[in-house]
Design a protein around this nucleic acid. Sequence first.
DNA 1: CAGGATCCCAAGGGATACTG
DNA 2: CAGTATCCCTTGGGATCCTG
Lengths: 117, 117
Amino acid sequence: MPDFKNDQYGTCTLTVERACPIELAMHVVGSKWKGIILYLLSHSPMYYNAMRREIPGITQRILTLQLRNLEVDGIIERKETNDNPKKVLYYLTALGEDFVPVLKSIKSWGNAYMSKQ
Amino acid sequence: MPDFKNDQYGTCTLTVERACPIELAMHVVGSKWKGIILYLLSHSPMYYNAMRREIPGITQRILTLQLRNLEVDGIIERKETNDNPKKVLYYLTALGEDFVPVLKSIKSWGNAYMSKQ
DNA sequence: CAGGATCCCAAGGGATACTG
DNA sequence: CAGTATCCCTTGGGATCCTG
């Protein structure tokens, strides 16, 4: 888990709220790829390469990086199998599952947005 | 309005969906400050400097930049008064209003996240 | 009051090659 | 299969000063 006492979120100065749940949420999930990754995992746990195939534009480095970030932030977990070659399964934590409804509302708004262009 | 035919969202290659409403939504609102800005505007229209005061960490350049982006993307609108010196009022469009429930769910998840640290 | 202009920096992201 | 290792580049964001 990250140490929020020692980063920007520990000393958030926004006056409308005593803290910044929105900025915090944006920090955790608001990158180019995290939304898609979480959307995939909201349907079922997935192995690394399966995820890669479902997100054609992403590179291995970036996918691994984003997965690590989500893991550190407690949104997902990874589990290695004993197979050879080994496989790594990624899945949502309880916190990650809690985010699924948020993701759904983001998705439906995105769809409405696209239809209005 | 941006020309989505000529950017990445026009040729999105994600296979799970024919298009990427989530990536699109993240693109539109997923920056460090946009969430806060929209949250403020969800309560009431605001003048430029009032917004600045409510978001202490932001610089003028960045605030203006984010407001311009949101305006181009059709999420907010700006209206100048005839006062001297002039004032500029920012407020949500219908599309922006549609995003408010999304923002609320993001906020409540963020609060839950913070309480679990 | 609501910005524009300039300069600068760090982070996120991308391309490619390699490996236990 | 699931990553590392390098190298590079663009973008978001920040600091400071100036203005109609």
